[in-house]
């Protein structure tokens, strides 16, 4: 793989961020983390590409789906995955139905599950980027 998959992970729990970083600490992935939505948005505002956005659902200030909807406006090529506690599933399901996010992963999750989901999301992100690039 010539290009690293750029992953942004937003969670108010630092341990989650660390685990995700460690699980995706491979040659294909480059993981940036943010403890808050604002921090995540700042990272997205930078010119560096972000292919996949992993977001917690329940966060102070804004929930994961809302956040990902904002992300879609800022970075349409970025594909969102919700890393969710099960209590939030109906809202997540609604978001899935609106294509606001690619998939969701229930906590606790398996590393392989996470890797697969991120890889798939990255593939979709690449597809979107190519479409974008060909259009304008």
């Amino acid at each position: 793989m010539h290009e690293l998959i750029q992953v942004l992970c937003v969670d108010d729990e630092i341990n989650i961020l660390n685990v995700v970083r460690r699980q995706l600490d491979d040659e294909e992935f480059e993981v940036q983390t943010a403890l808050t939505v604002e921090e995540g948005l700042q990272i997205l505002a930078q010119k560096t590409p972000i292919h996949v956005v992993l977001s917690d659902f329940r966060m102070p200030g804004m929930n994961g789906v809302e956040f990902l909807q904002q992300v879609a406006r800022v970075r349409p090529e970025a594909v969102g995955i919700v890393l969710s506690g099960f209590a939030d599933i109906p809202a997540v399901r609604q978001a899935l139905e609106k294509d606001a996010l690619f998939s969701f992963i229930a906590k606790p999750w398996k590393a392989s599950e996470l890797r697969k989901a991120v890889m798939d999301a990255a593939a979709l992100s690449n597809l979107r980027s190519r479409e974008e690039g060909s259009l304008p």
């Binding site: 685990v19 995700v20 506690g85 590393a111």
Partner: peptide, 11 residues
């Protein structure tokens, strides 16, 4: 519980 379990299991 899921959050801690999430990172415990993940770790």
């Amino acid at each position: 519980i899921n959050n801690p379990i999430g990172f415990v299991a993940g770790n």
